[in-house]
């Protein structure tokens, strides 16, 4: 069942990250963009916590490239802008954490 699409564009040290983690659950999707992509770096506490949430994790490809983390990310699906749009069509409601 698809429930909530979360977008997060702040880093793991931010209030946005903390608040997002408080809510996110299995059945949700989380799209990391901007500084949010640092949350998906493998073998970090943040990455492990996101994986443990049970939500589908997505990262915006261009933002991971810009940040230099493309090769450091594990367990996330890469999407471009069209993929982002497709996600917004799949989920009836969206919460932006920023």
């Amino acid at each position: 069942m698809t429930v909530i699409l979360h977008t997060l564009n702040t880093s793991p040290g931010s209030a946005g990250f903390t608040d997002c983690l408080r809510v996110i659950a299995a059945g949700d999707a989380l799209l990391l963009m901007g500084d949010g992509v640092y949350g998906a770096i493998a073998d970090t506490a943040a990455g492990a916590t996101l994986q443990a949430s049970g939500a589908e994790i997505y990262v915006l490809t261009a933002d991971t490239a810009a940040a230099g983390v493309s090769n450091l990310i594990k367990g996330a699906n890469h999407v471009d802008m069209d993929g982002f749009v497709a996600l917004t069509e799949r989920f009836p409601r969206q919460q932006a954490w920023y």
């Binding site: 429930v3 909530i4 809510v23 996110i24 409601r93 919460q95 954490w97």
Partner: peptide, 17 residues
Amino acid sequence: DGPGIHQLMTDCDHVLG
């Protein structure tokens, strides 16, 4: 709590953050 907030969001048609 966290699950309560998730349920609240699920119950509403639109979420404005």
